[in-house]
Design a protein around this nucleic acid. Structure first.
Lengths: 258, 258
DNA sequence: ATAAGAGTCTCGTTTTTTGCAACCGTAGTT
DNA sequence: AACTACGGTTGCAAAAAACGAGACTCTTAT
């Protein structure tokens, strides 16, 4: 195991539930000798991938991770615009919301706004999500050309509900282009439904998606139509500020849940 | 140079202005042979510290950085509450705002909201800021005990205006405890003033600060008092939700700019 | 005073990393 | 069509870093 893979493994140990790590934690969780764990954590500390947790010998995520993330996205005007709208939506509906982008064939989550309702969707940490098998992914795929869509590999979907052929996917993407929003239910996450819209700043080649996720069995079709309408309205407000023709050059749509 | 220091150096090359890197970029910027750069970037890609920029041979920041940052802070209820308030403040005033935490003796910036005014403060990327020499840092230091404050090293300040002795610092922190907000001018960043408040979620041992920064010469004292009042009001609203006794157990203060 | 556990350090060995130089693929120029 | 330039990759021997066992230190609990 190279030291870089060891460092990556350490970073993956952090989570909302595990904000600090000790030498013994790392040795145990990564099944490595204590001396190796001690040196690895010390080396990561020196590079600011980790920092000390106060005066304790425990370690926390370091400056470099936040600085890299922030330098990369902390100044995105589009992310800020979306963030403001999504925050309001999550507060109003009580559901969790995500802001994501495409990473080749996967969805990369940038921001999360947790819902406030007792029954809440929490995404498994670090899991990779295929774009074609999620509403948020499909909302962004709808902005790609057919040539790009045809190169996607449509396997490893967790649900029978995900499209299995490029023709089926193109059909769904056509619907999304028409109505402006995407939905998924019982696909990537069992028992969970989601509704997503996309937004782009063409001048900066930035394409994002934001969505609401909720337990599928608790939300009626009428309420889902309401969520879709609010997401579309939010996307339109953002689009007016960044001049996204996907929204600004389309007629107001009749919002109908499938 | 160990591969870990090389990887950290690569991550530091990213910025708002530099969202992608090629092998040649890294070789040139880090003064290393092309083969070393090629293999280093490939190794980082394999560990998801980097990802490919579409079909090009260029690299972008990878999943692991965002996942680590998000897993660590993306779910912070306190950060979300502060973020919502700060977003509104920045939109209302047009100035840049930061959300930060303490990292031992330094300030670690978590979120940035850029202002909208033409004359805007932009913090140098990756710079370390001493807590005792910034308003946002002092607002958090005001919540520490005297014993902890006395262990701080009060050197390397960029300005003569920063406190030089622990007695002087304690005096300033006493004022901050009394009025609830901190200010700085011409200290860490020449020509720039800032006003900050702190907020804590004691149940989760989370201490944050948020602030507005602006060019010092353009804002009159009366307007600064207005900013301080709005920051205090925002802190109070958050404090009511997380039960922060620093705010909820103090009388409404007369807001007076020093 | 003793035991247990967390964490550090030494040192010989092993593994990884390095950089030179050659090479490949692509694009532009003649 | 041939040549040049550039970005990026690969083989290989050498150099450097990393490894892990085991001894050690320090702290805490009994």
């Amino acid at each position: 195991m190279s030291i870089l893979s060891g460092a990556a493994a350490v970073l993956r140990l952090f989570s909302v539930e595990r904000q600090e790590l000790s030498v013994t934690d790392v040795a145990r969780l990564l099944d490595m000798p204590k001396s190796s764990a001690s040196r690895l954590l010390r080396a990561m500390l020196n590079q600011q991938l980790l920092m000390h947790a106060g005066d304790t010998p425990r370690y926390r995520v370091g400056h470099l991770i936040f600085e890299t993330s922030r330098a990369y996205f902390g100044h995105s005007h589009l992310v800020d615009l979306v963030d403001g709208e999504l925050l309001e939506l999550c507060q109003a509906t009580g559901h969790t919301g995500y802001i994501s982008m495409l990473d080749n064939e996967d969805v990369l989550v940038l921001r999360v706004h947790l819902g406030t309702q007792p029954l809440r969707v929490v995404t498994p940490h670090g899991s990779r999500r295929k774009a074609f098998a999620t509403s948020t992914g499909r909302s962004m795929l709808a902005r790609l050309g057919a040539a790009q869509v045809d190169t996607l590999t449509l396997d490893h979907a967790r649900s029978e509900k995900s499209p299995k052929t490029h023709a089926a996917l193109e059909h769904i993407l056509g619907e999304i282009r028409c109505k402006g929003w995407a939905e998924a239910e019982d696909e990537e996450i069992p028992g969970v439904a989601s509704i997503a819209v996309s937004i782009a700043d063409a001048r900066k080649s930035e394409l994002l998606s934001f969505c609401l996720v909720f337990p599928a069995h608790t939300i009626a079709q009428g309420e889902r139509a309401n969520y879709a309408a609010r997401l579309v309205a939010a996307a339109r407000r953002i689009a007016a500020q960044v001049d996204d023709p996907f929204w600004t050059q389309r007629h107001p749509l009749k919002i109908v849940a499938a």
